[in-house]
């Protein structure tokens, strides 16, 4: 389905995750973050950059791996994205919802 995000028509799935990552830009990320009630800071963007990098390299994302990334520890990750950090940050990063239970 299509959704207007930051005045651009973007393809998303029924949960609001981008289905075509090439449509992503920071404006889109910012708009999704606002919908999720998150005010983006430099630290938020660093996490988003890291997730996109991992996604590009086909590395499956888990909370444990993010916690060991050096970008943010697990406590900090929950502070940045309180309502489900991996889910929320992936949505903002324009990558698929992680299918991991850990």
């Amino acid at each position: 389905m299509e959704k207007i995000i930051a005045n651009q028509s973007i393809n998303v799935n029924d949960e609001g995750y981008l289905t075509n990552h090439s449509q992503w830009n920071r404006e889109i990320g910012h708009a999704i973050a606002q919908e999720e009630g998150i005010e983006m800071t430099d630290h938020h963007w660093k996490v988003v950059d890291y997730l996109q990098e991992q996604h590009k390299n086909d590395v499956p994302l888990t909370i444990r791996r993010v916690g060991k990334s050096g970008v943010v520890d697990i406590k900090g990750f929950y502070e940045l994205f309180p309502k489900g950090p991996l889910k929320t940050s992936s949505k903002i990063a324009g990558i698929p919802k992680p299918a991991s239970c850990i």
């Binding site: 499956p60 888990t62 909370i63 444990r64 791996r65 916690g67 520890d73 697990i74 406590k75 929950y78 991991s100 850990i102």
Partner: peptide, 17 residues
């Protein structure tokens, strides 16, 4: 499957709130 050992898992749980 990237499932941590018990001690590390407990740290993760605590850090996760």
């Amino acid at each position: 499957l990237d499932i941590p050992p018990v001690d590390e898992f407990l740290e993760i749980l605590s850090a996760s709130g």
